[in-house]
Amino acid sequence: MQLENKRIIVRRDIMADAKADAAVERQRLLERGTLVVNLVSSPGAGKTALLQATARHWHDKHSMAVLVGDLETDRDAQRLSPYVPVAQLTTGGACHLELPLVRRGLMALGDPQVDFLFIENVGNLVCPASHDLGEHLRVVMLSVTDGDDKPGKYPKMFRTSHAVVISKIDLLPYVPFQVGNAVRDALTVQPALTSIQLSSQTGAGIDEWCRFLENARDRLVLKRECTSMV
């Protein structure tokens, strides 16, 4: 008997299983009152400095923990450890974080019950866009020294983010960066983006940033349900 080939129709996102795992983690952390923020940017945009400023601003008002991803070294974790519980996730060359690594970091911290869990992703505006880490908010940072043309060049990252933070605004007088151009470009890709301008050095905008996070947490924790944009 001649046996014939069989084409199985699937039509399924290849990341569907990973996204389902992330959704479970997102709901678990929400139910215990933790808002998870995935902070992404190019290297050197000021993610660690912003988290230091955030911890200083809140002081005892809110509890927070940080998982910080880097290819090598624990330098960022060392910078943050005087302020908050922090676990370094060293990827050993990989260009982005994935959920299993995040879970391992959480366990290393003893799965803490905190108001805010920040995941400082590997500095990269490309690969982290495709990986759902179970976050409730994805925040993309753009420093004024990066250039105002980045949103259109990295559309997936901006499309899948909830907020864009324009950092290092104290340097605006010295660089050709046009805030209006950057925000307009970002809103073309994702009209629902919230935009915040700040400087971790001077503290300008840190109050607005923290209020944005507090409001997001209040909304989500009250609603008790969340979805991903990834």
Partner: peptide, 21 residues
């Protein structure tokens, strides 16, 4: 309107698998 739900082109989708006995 900017309220758009992407229906295609934003992920890698496995469409089909061809198997032979």
């Amino acid at each position: 309107s900017t309220k758009l739900e992407i229906s295609q082109g934003d992920c890698v989708r496995l469409m089909s698998v061809n198997l032979t006995p």
